[in-house]
């Protein structure tokens, strides 16, 4: 699935994870589609999930309904980028 502007979405999501979780750019640069997030990053607790979602909304100008978010959405970096890209494509 390639969406127009997916590269920008990926860059924004990477930056949000760095900013919200306090991760270094070196660390977020290593994220690939299969890098596990929720449950694998100790920094990503439930409060941080709220921060990530809100910051992704703000930066991409999208609205995320909380019931659209489930365990899958933040399971991997690729899943989160794909979710955000779908929202920007609407």
């Amino acid at each position: 699935m390639i969406f127009e502007g997916t590269h920008e979405v990926e860059r924004a999501v990477r930056a949000v994870l760095g900013d919200v979780l306090g991760l270094s750019p070196e660390r977020t640069a290593e994220f690939t589609d299969v890098t596990p997030l929720f449950g694998a990053l100790p920094e990503l607790d439930s409060m941080a999930v709220a921060g990530v979602l809100t910051e992704v909304e703000d930066r991409l100008g999208i609205v995320i309904e909380d019931d659209e978010v489930d365990g899958e959405t933040l399971s991997t970096f690729g899943a989160l980028v794909a979710f955000a890209a779908r929202k920007t494509a609407v």
Partner: peptide, 11 residues
């Protein structure tokens, strides 16, 4: 700058 208000830990 970083949006520190979104950080999960104070920074």
């Amino acid at each position: 700058g970083s949006p520190l208000w979104r950080r999960s830990e104070p920074a």
